[in-house]
Amino acid sequence: MSQTAFEVHDMTVAYHRRPVLWDIDLEIPEGKLVGIVGPNGAGKTTLIKAALGLVQLASGKVEIYGKSYEEQRHLIGYVPQRESVDWDFPVTVRDVVLMGTYGRLGWFRRPGKAELEIADRSLQHVGMGAFAKRQIRQLSGGQQQRVFLARALAQEAQIYFLDEPFAGVDAATESAIVELLEELRTSGKTVLVVHHDLQTVSDYFDYVILLNMRLIACGPVEETFTNENLQKTYGGRLTILDEAAEAIRRSKPLQ
């Protein structure tokens, strides 16, 4: 068994004190393409955000290559949902990709030639080299998504978190993304992808995390992506778990 890239222990996450993820425990070995699958409101995005320190954990911990997230920032690449940014922002495609290198630069240092090269290379990689000078509003949805991917590539991370990269993209972009993900895996990176389309899970991924407020299963696709597990994942919400979460929200006025 190879090294563990990503590990979550006993993690509970609450929004406004209402738990949305209960006691998650999972381990992802290095070099896997991982699909995070579950119904709406199952906490898929929350899992990623918690892993990246964007939301507070109510309990438990997250480890990246055995260390806390803060120590391993430089190993992490993140692709947020496309709607999360303002596409009227006055930046060009290349500027956005260049942002991927900021983390490595740290405070005060400005991107130089080397960073520009990385940015251009990443753009070429996703087939967007010709668009470097465009303002980002002028891109199609699929192209915007590719720019985000190029930015993640420019982060030169070991482990990537992608939040619904396939949402609202054209078929060509979708297959380009898949190709890219496979390349990343070949070069030993670990990629976690929030995914919606059950049809394609077994084609795209080799590992899968099934979520519905709690972890249903986590493991290689062949063993884990079974009808039985899917039934558990999508077979309605656990009403009592829901009600209990609601009770907690009501009775804990401050935290």
Binding site: W22, R214, A217, I240, L241
Partner: peptide
């Protein structure tokens, strides 16, 4: 019991 049976918690 509920957590163990329904929510698959160890």
């Amino acid at each position: 019991l509920y957590l163990m049976d329904y929510a698959n918690i160890a």
